[in-house]
Design a protein around this nucleic acid. Structure first.
Lengths: 230, 230
DNA sequence: GGCCATCCTGACCAAACGGTCAAGAAATTT
DNA sequence: AAATTTCTTGACCGTTTGGTCAGGATGGCC
């Protein structure tokens, strides 16, 4: 009797991310066992870490959720800490995408509006990533310190200069760009991080698409108008 | 702000000898040993819980930070869970104060502006409370579910009606009040919860008064202007 | 089929944790 | 000062945790 808890949603998701190019038919290629299992474990780990933080999560729970025996975690990722680092690394992209539109010759309303939109949709589509990031930063952010002081800081500086130029050209108010970013991040990620609170206040079981629609509308509107755009 | 709450779940500890503490009338016993030590432990517990969450915090660390032996925690608070509950209970007031100014006959700019101000200053003055609240809600908020679905929801509904009236009178834009609240909470509490990230991006050791000054200015301005006030 | 590398897993371990206890020290009351 | 209640503490315990290991199963390649 094999201990297959198979058919989980994790398996389907992992199959989607598997390299499908050269493979024919349904049989996974040789080297893909590793990738498949790593993906399954990473997804389970993200869920558990996002809910309980690093210390609160147990390797046993992650293994159970992934449907694999516990030693399998260590086989693929070494220690719990290394597994955590791998999960964190997969999240960093959330911060870098979507800011591309903020360019000197772009339209501020569109650029910033789309950025807010994308951030809110990220909260809807990958809430666990947002929550895990939040827990990590609240705890001091030691694992992401380099990222925050490096790529993230540079990005804020760069996009801040674009906004300063927009302001100089009269296209928007001279708002402090860094704090505008903080405000956008906070106002959008709150729909993932504080979903429990928002659902409770709105008397719903969860933050569903209806809520996200009004959220997107409201936040985009206040941010843009608040910056003197539009 | 209401005054402090005496440890409500403290009595469960000393079961050996009936804890006859508070039954016969109010015995202030100014500076009693019990109150002093409970306050010390609660403060230490809040710091540790805020950084590591419930599971990540250890009673040994709380005891060390409070400067008392570990069994002393159990003597005063029973279990770790009860200590956590006591800490959480002390935080709830943060959500209720400061919204008082939002009244039908008040000036929207002043009322909302002061509310944002107060929330940002709360992030500056009690960052650990904000962070602990965040960790609790991210983890599902089971310990505060009643509060969120009760007093908090009612408060949002009540103040939302005030804002709807302001909007009907043309004093502000017809913004969804609940989402405006979410935005204010997120934009203000982020200066406590995400302090590590903000400090890193701004290239500072910590989020100091300078940062808070610009933060207050920027957030108040964007929120008010974004709502069509001012 | 035969061989090898990769993958899987039940059983186990040392450390850390929450919690307990009994006895002693310090207040408080009588 | 004696009695009694409250407070303090080192030592201890059962459970849970992250991590290990040896050996078995599986798949790829000739």
């Amino acid at each position: 009797m094999s201990s297959k808890r198979a058919g989980s949603s994790a398996a389907t998701a992992a199959r989607k991310t598997a390299p499908s190019a050269a493979e024919t038919a349904e049989k996974p290629a040789a080297g893909s066992i590793r990738e498949r299992n790593q993906a399954i474990i990473l997804k389970a780990a993200e869920q558990v870490f996002a809910k309980k933080g690093f210390n609160g999560a147990t390797t046993a729970e992650i293994a159970r959720k992934a449907g694999v025996p516990k030693p399998n975690l260590h086989y693929y990722f070494g220690t719990k800490q290394q597994l955590y680092d791998s999960v964190i690394e997969n999240i960093l992209d959330l911060w870098l995408g979507a800011m591309d539109e903020i360019q000197p010759d772009a339209d501020p309303a569109e650029a910033i509006g789309h950025y807010v939109q994308n951030k809110i949709r990220a909260s809807r589509d990958w809430p666990d990533s947002s929550r895990l990031w939040a827990i990590e930063v609240i705890g001091g952010g030691r694992h992401v310190s380099n990222f925050m002081k490096g790529r993230l800081r540079n990005l804020v500086r760069e996009k801040g200069q674009v906004m300063a130029r927009w302001a100089a050209e009269g296209k928007m108010d001279p708002v402090d760009p860094a704090h505008l970013m903080f405000m956008i991040w906070a106002s959008t990620q709150t729909y993932a991080d504080f979903a429990a609170q928002i659902a409770a206040v709105l008397d719903r079981d969860a933050v569903d698409d209806d809520v996200f629609r009004v959220a997107e509308q409201t936040v985009v509107r206040i941010i843009l108008k608040g910056c003197g755009i539009g």
